[in-house]
């Protein structure tokens, strides 16, 4: 089945975003920890390391969004939704993708490209002593992430389509394991 196969390819892309984001999170955790230890114990501060904290944190949450979309982790108001049939749910998700998610992500991603390009053309760096160069790198995470959400959204659309067409069963979202 082409549609199922495509859904799987997109899903593994979203999974990859989640893995990258998780590794970046661990780096961020140690980054902050090391900065605290360096400052308090060794009386030493690196502005570059401090800026790296928010670079990592920003990448973590931006790249995490497509992954969370794939895992069904984004909150819904399910007062009505919960009681609906799998088929109706799949229609809601397909329409939601088409009307809400796709245009939103495409537009923000589109303007994000200009945003990152400006930083690249100006050779923007940190304005602080010892700060990080290449601001365009972190700025380009914005368009990248929004296009990734878009791709992950196509995955959600296909999944709903496959459920609608009866190609596959709906799977329920598994929250953090308890």
């Amino acid at each position: 089945m082409f549609l199922l196969r495509l859904e799987q390819v997109i899903n593994s892309f979203s999974e990859l975003m989640g893995k990258i984001s998780a590794v970046l999170f661990v780096l961020m955790l140690f980054n902050v920890f090391i900065d605290v230890v360096m400052r308090y114990v060794f009386n030493d501060v690196s502005i570059g390391m401090q800026e790296m904290e928010w670079h990592l944190y920003a990448a973590v949450f931006l790249l995490g969004v497509p992954y969370t979309l794939k895992t069904g982790g984004h909150v819904r108001v399910d007062i009505i939704y919960d009681g609906l049939s799998a088929k109706t749910k799949s229609i809601i998700d397909m329409l939601g993708c088409l009307i809400l998610l796709f245009p939103f992500c495409a537009l923000v991603g589109w303007y994000g490209v200009d945003f990152a390009r400006e930083a690249f053309e100006l050779g923007e760096t940190s304005g602080d002593p010892g700060g990080l160069p290449y601001r365009w790198l972190i700025k380009s995470v914005i368009p990248f992430a929004f296009f990734a959400i878009l791709i992950s959204g196509v995955g959600l659309f296909l999944k709903s389509l496959n459920v609608y067409l009866g190609n596959s069963q709906a799977d329920d979202y598994q929250p953090p394991q308890h």
Binding site: V45, D128, P129
Partner: peptide, 24 residues
């Protein structure tokens, strides 16, 4: 030496040259 001071930009660079530690 080792003075932890919040001061951004060029002035922060001067503090750093003196041995202070500008912080964000």
């Amino acid at each position: 030496q080792g003075l932890k001071i919040r001061i951004p930009g060029f002035a922060g660079e001067i503090w750093a040259k003196l041995g202070a530690k500008p912080v964000n």
